[in-house]
Nucleic acid binder design. Structure first.
Lengths: 219, 219
DNA sequence: CGCTTAATGCACCATCTAGTTACTTCCTTA
DNA sequence: TAAGGAAGTAACTAGATGGTGCATTAAGCG
């Protein structure tokens, strides 16, 4: 999406006054942020419009409804993480390294993109009705599962991993141990009476997670 | 809370017409259900009142505000799970059995009480501002962590578990691998293209989780 | 049995919210 | 350069929504 350039036909920047793609993108970005902060129900269309420096009418013009806007946001969020995962080139690594790298990546991605977690939570509150409509998300996930499956197979061949591990269960577990810690960082920090988001605590958790996964798969 | 009895001073049941405790409890139950279904922002006070067969005025009479009502609900939810955990009498079991029992219990509790998960998610969306005010929750969690800590110590002594495991990290992990699977059951079932809530799938996941935890702690 | 107090119900309000109508302004292209 | 479509705006609406004021009614006590 090269929509922020705002160039006229002669290629000269001119501070884009009327730029459909740019406006659409600003709305999407603002919506992602507001939906992540307040959930689908809690987010306000007026607030999104203001944050996007767009007129509310534009939201309906480009997206049709609040629900459709949410769908665009969640689809985009899944697409981003799946794209980033593919860029890890895990197939080129030794299976143990590949797996560790995936655990690290997953943790860091959630840490740097907390809105992904909140959006997924919100989507599950709504019984995945938006994700259900997206073929793109399914296809990209299929590719991702295949990649993890490949790592497992190579690990079994090399004698590093035990056989019979379901790649989907493994995926879920890798996600779970990071996701849960971070999505529940507020209640967690209160009930356990320690700051879970302190630098040392975060590093400790990442090492713990790597250890958990390595022990889980090792032969 | 023995509030449903509705007895007059002579102890005879008389279909309680004016029963403050009963009304309060009906509101709490209805609120828990509606907050769990729609989140704090999405839940409607009028709907809660109707579901509780109480007048909306009563909600404000007993709880003061929607926020205070939510606080009562979340405090109650934490209290319930912590109470159930204490009833497991894990101290009387062999450390390995105790740990397995805890993993099984946690999974089954989330499965049977899905509203707990949704409430906690909602509370984290609001940065734990309600839980923050509850001393009860902190105290009960402290006791729970001590119990897990005891299991770990006994396991180290018996030679079953390795030393140096942080009970809070272990707790978080036990919760995570069940919680994540279940809270994301809707998106999970779509993106992985398999029904995660099917009976066999649930059993498989539980066994996988027990395995994960056992491998994590074993010497 | 009457009186006080707490439980309950009704009607109402001020504000907000998703979505729309009717309009103006800019940009492209023939 | 004129025209038509696309981008953008402001004001509005119909229905919610959280929250209240006030009257009413039952419970329990002396």
């Amino acid at each position: 999406m090269d929509a922020t350039s705002g160039k006229s036909k002669n290629g000269v920047r001119k501070g884009r006054l009327r730029d459909a793609e740019a406006t659409k993108l600003r709305i999407l970005v603002a919506a992602k942020s507001d939906f992540a902060k307040n959930g689908l129900g809690g987010a306000r269309v007026d607030v999104i419009a203001a944050k996007a420096k767009a007129n509310k009418r534009m939201i309906y013009h480009y997206f049709g409804s609040k629900d459709n806007l949410f769908q665009a946001v969640i689809e985009n969020a899944y697409h981003d993480i799946r794209t980033a995962e593919q860029k890890l080139n895990l197939d080129d690594l030794d299976p143990k390294d590949a797996l560790e790298r995936l655990v690290r990546f997953t943790w860091q991605y959630y840490l740097k993109n907390p809105e992904f977690i909140t959006l997924v939570n919100s989507e599950n509150l709504h019984r995945a009705k938006h994700v259900k409509r997206s073929e793109l998300i399914k296809a990209e996930t299929r590719k991702f599962v295949a990649m993890v499956s490949g790592i497992l197979e190579r690990g079994v061949s090399s004698g590093d991993f035990r056989a019979g591990i379901d790649p989907v269960q493994l995926n879920i577990t890798i996600a779970a141990i990071g996701y849960y810690y971070l999505t529940n960082r507020f209640t967690g920090s209160i009930i356990f009476e320690r700051d879970l988001m302190e630098k040392d605590a975060l590093n400790e958790r990442l090492e713990f997670n790597i250890d958990t996964i390595m022990r889980l798969v090792s032969a």
